[in-house]
Amino acid sequence: MNPVWRKRALLGLPLLAAGGAGLGFLAMLRGLSTGNYNPHGVPSALLGKAPPEFTLPALAGSPQPAFGSAELRGLGRPVLVNFFASWCVPCIIEHPQLMALQRAGVPVFGVAYKDKAADALAFLARRGNPFQALAADEPGRVAIDWGVYGVPESYLLDRQGIIRWRWAGPITEDTMSAELQPLLRRYSA
């Protein structure tokens, strides 16, 4: 190579590397703000699989029926399984989106995680009950079988009952429009 060109290329190399790193950083920041990139996120080990086998009791005093893995099979339509607790602040943030899903006719199955039945019922009485079925997991063992590591956490099951999406943290309006609604359209078809 011509020595002058060689020198230019060598000078340009750090610039190129810095530019590349900058672009990468920008992509990371964008991901952080849209929620697509979460450095602390634990990817679900259950994607593409059926939920674990489980049975749970109903939430005492609630009119909604309990559910287990048997009730999640063969529903013929996508369903959202939501782990929540009355003591969980992000669950309050998320709650309006769950109500919107219920209004849109999407079945939402709730699991009250490590919650006292009375507290969970009071939470739902105050903010509305979006759940078609409602189970209580006070020991939090079934949640561990699902790979839950905090509340709120939601799992979208397709028509065949296979887990297609997991969201750790509150479902916000952005999550709805960017992630959940497109997925619901895809798996309803």
């Binding site: 634990v42 990817p43 679900s44 080990a45 259950l46 079988d145 699902w146 790979g147």
Partner: peptide, 9 residues
């Protein structure tokens, strides 16, 4: 635990 939480655990 690996079956539930994957590589992360």
């Amino acid at each position: 635990l690996y079956a539930r939480y994957g590589d992360f655990v």
